[in-house]
């Protein structure tokens, strides 16, 4: 953020330096552009101010979440709440631990389930996405549109039939009920299809001529090329599973098997909301997702180069 600060304050020297580094370290794809003349500089500064300001505004709820989680309830009783760094303490988290002795267990459950779901989705969605994007086969469009359309029915009405299926399979109170229906996702397949669709076909064709199997093409050529897309998919899927609430609530009953959001919901009182407890729970639940974001973010920026792939 400091570099933007520099731009805002109008120190062209650092900005120019910065640009050079950006172009040098470059990633494929970025069109080279550098402001020339007063008008363009002014424009760039204006734009950066706007972009920074918006980033700050959109961060407000998250900052508010962590501040209230770190502020003992007393400070929250006033409106506007008296939240200042001086008051920060871990009291709410201690209370959370006390109220929810199973918290580590729920956390572990969710880590395992969400990770497994993410891995399965990365595999199945990318494979199916590649198939729908690159292979011509009878029924392709009909199959694809049928599964896409199923997403347009709101989940509220499919809940009961879903529950009946799970019951019939004897998966009630078992992670199978959560894991197996989530192993592949329509949105994920669609995302990867759209992403892979624009990859040049020449490489695959070349590989095919060289006698590479269809699976080999996907594994050795497509996958390395779509790391940024897979990073986005991984983030989306992990986060969706991490936040899952209604479905685990309906299919799990043993408290030690609960998923995190479901477990945190048991802390809610009937009448009054204990904001300290609620916010520390939400913050606790948000932290791993932030971590996962930064892990995947590395791949988000991996560019591709045709030469590298062909050699490798």
């Amino acid at each position: 953020m400091s570099t933007n600060g520099a731009v805002v304050r109008g120190k062209p020297g650092r900005w120019a330096l910065h640009r050079r580094r950006a172009t040098a370290g470059a990633v494929q794809g970025g069109p080279s552009w550098r402001p020339r003349g007063v008008a363009q500089w002014a424009g760039a500064i204006l734009v950066m101010t706007f972009v920074t300001a918006w980033a700050v505004v959109s961060l407000v709820p998250l900052v508010w979440l962590f501040t209230t989680a770190l502020t003992p309830s007393s400070a929250l009783l006033r409106i506007p709440p008296d939240v200042s760094v001086r008051n920060f303490s871990l009291d709410n988290f201690k209370l959370l631990q006390e109220r929810a002795p199973l918290l580590p267990r729920w956390f572990l459950n969710t880590v395992l389930v969400a990770s497994a779901v993410t891995v399965f989705n990365l595999f199945f969605d990318t494979l199916a996405g590649y198939t729908f994007a690159k292979l011509q086969f009878p029924g392709r469009d009909i199959i694809f549109w049928t599964i896409l359309c199923t997403m347009m029915i709101p989940g509220q009405v499919t809940l009961v039939p879903m529950f009946m299926i799970v019951k019939a399979l004897h998966w009630y109170d078992s992670y199978f009920a959560i894991l197996i229906p989530a192993m592949a996702g329509v949105f994920g397949i669609f995302l990867m299809k759209q992403y892979i669709q624009t990859l040049p076909s020449e490489i695959e064709d070349a590989a095919r001529v060289d006698g590479c199997s269809e699976f080999g093409i996907w594994w050795r050529i497509i996958l390395p090329l779509c790391k940024p897309g897979m990073a986005v998919l991984g983030i989306f899927v992990f986060m969706a599973e991490w936040k899952a609430f209604m479905w685990p609530l309906i299919v799990l009953k043993t408290e030690s098997k609960f998923m995190l959001e479901q477990g945190l919901a048991t802390l809610q009182q009937q009448f009054f909301t204990d904001y300290g407890l609620l916010m520390s729970g939400a913050a606790f639940s948000a932290l791993p997702m932030i971590l996962v974001f930064f892990v995947f973010q590395r791949y988000l920026m991996e560019g591709w180069s045709v030469g590298g792939v062909l050699k490798g």
Partner: peptide, 29 residues
């Protein structure tokens, strides 16, 4: 996309991370 890798990652985080908070909590805020 015109920014450096590191600046870009800061902005990506700033724009994306608010989404990690649960929708219920954000609505309450």
């Amino acid at each position: 996309r015109h920014l450096s890798e590191r600046t870009q990652s800061l902005f990506r985080a700033a724009y994306y991370l608010p989404g990690v908070a649960s929708a219920v909590v954000i609505s309450m805020v």
